[in-house]
Deep mutational scan, measured.
Amino acid sequence: SDPSEDRAPESARVGNIPSSTSALKVPQLKVAESAQGPAAAHTTDTAGYNAMEESVSREKPELTASTERVNKRMSMVVSGLTPEEFMLVYKFARKHHITLTNLITEETTHVVMKTDAEFVCERTLKYFLGIAGGKWVVSYFWVTQSIKERKMLNEHDFEVRGDVVNGRNHQGPKRARESQDRKIFRGLEICCYGPFTNMPTDQLEWMVQLCGASVVKELSSFTLGTGVHPIVVVQPDAWTEDNGFHAIGQMCEAPVVTREWVLDSVALYQCQELDTYLIPQIPHSHY
């Protein structure tokens, strides 16, 4: 159930021909089969995070001529859309010479989310990475209204306002976009420790780096000194050995919190207090 199309920051360009055919990675995205229709094609874990990302398996898109002007500035990904909605975005992107990729990268400028009429969405990996990267996180209605009015409308009017977990109007995407000089995790050293489900560890690490944190791979690698705040992030329900995560405190002095601390902080683009996310640790033995 991992969102495989989000696994690594590679891009698939639509609308320009790469210098070599080997560089072309066409979105071959799968549809989750469901008797209840597209709305039930998501699996949500206890964290309220949509693990099964969206989309559609299609034939290789038709490439435009390399001489045609390509908008190098805009690059989009989509999240939560049905196959039909994805194809509408594809046509919109081609019309406006926008790069459409299946994986979010540093070059991505827009994340197009499936939302309700009030621009509230589910939480997906692309949603988190879009906010963390200060990108435009907009409703699919931006595409449909632009098509209806036959011009590209202003993104401000379609920015995602909230999500089904953290609140319907928290304005996290807007706050992140306007606060890239004040990253929420700066001054923190974060170790993403142990197993994680539904989200590859490297993507979680990239997320906290985008928010200004330094990533530490091992508990023994924390910088011990003033001005640096170490934090260990774990996902308790992913551990097979009972309560192993309670013993992390015996290996390092850092506070240990659940992954929800990261996800909530990123969604709201406000660093949350650790208290409600802390995992009790077995104290050091004193002999």
Rank of each mutant, 00 (worst) to 15 (best):
E122L: 05
A254K: 10
S220W: 15
L153G: 02
V232P: 01
A39K: 09
M74P: 04
A51F: 03
A213L: 02
R69G: 15
P255V: 15
S4A: 14
Q272L: 09
Y277W: 02
I282W: 14
R186L: 11
I184V: 11
R123P: 01
D237M: 05
E178V: 04
R182F: 07
S139P: 01
A254C: 15
T276Q: 14
M76F: 11
A8E: 10
S285W: 09
L219V: 11
T240H: 07
V228L: 14
K217F: 14
P283T: 09
Y193R: 15
R168V: 10
N16S: 08
P173D: 00
K217D: 15
C121L: 00
T101D: 08
N169G: 08
A8K: 06
S55T: 09
S139I: 00
Y287T: 09
E54G: 12
E205T: 11
N16K: 10
W142T: 00
V228M: 05
V112A: 02
M113V: 04
L268V: 13
E107V: 01
S57Q: 10
R182S: 09
P9L: 06
L100Q: 04
I184Y: 01
P255Q: 04
Q145K: 13
A93R: 04
V165E: 03
L29R: 10
Q281D: 14
A117D: 09
G130V: 01
P280A: 13
E122G: 02
I282Q: 11
N166L: 04
S22N: 09
Q270W: 05
S22P: 05
R186C: 07
Q28N: 05
E68I: 06
P195R: 12
G187V: 03
V160E: 00
N16R: 05
H42Q: 14
F196T: 14
V89S: 10
E149T: 14
I190V: 14
A247Q: 15
L63K: 04
A35V: 03
V233P: 00
K135N: 09
D6S: 08
L129H: 07
K72T: 14
I17V: 13
A8G: 13
T109I: 00
V26R: 09
D6F: 03
H97A: 13
S265C: 11
P38A: 12
L278G: 13
P255T: 02
E54A: 07
V257E: 01
L268G: 10
E106R: 05
A40C: 10
E178S: 02
L103S: 08
G80A: 10
W206L: 12
M207N: 03
Q171T: 11
E107G: 05
V137E: 00
R259T: 02
D237N: 12
S1V: 09
E122S: 05
V266E: 02
W261A: 01
V111G: 00
F222P: 15
C252K: 07
T46Y: 06
G249V: 01
V78R: 05
L63G: 03
H97F: 10
G134N: 08
E159R: 01
V137L: 11
T105L: 07
R69M: 02
I190T: 02
D116L: 01
E54F: 14
E253V: 11
Y193Q: 12
M76A: 12
V137D: 00
S220G: 05
E260C: 11
H170E: 01
T64H: 13
F119S: 08
V56P: 01
N16A: 07
G167R: 01
V138L: 11
V14T: 11
R7Q: 09
V257L: 12
A254R: 15
G194L: 02
K183P: 14
P27V: 15
T197L: 11
Q281K: 11
F128H: 01
Q270L: 09
T223S: 13
S285E: 13
T258D: 06
V234P: 00
G37H: 04
D45R: 10
N102C: 08
Y49F: 13
M207G: 00
R259M: 02
V26L: 13
H246N: 05
R182Y: 14
E149A: 06
N16I: 15
C252T: 14
L268C: 14
I104E: 02
H97W: 06
P27N: 10
D6G: 07
V256L: 15
V257I: 10
V138T: 06
S214R: 10
L263G: 01
V164K: 03
T258A: 10
H246R: 13
L100A: 05
Q145V: 07
D45G: 10
A35T: 12
K25H: 04
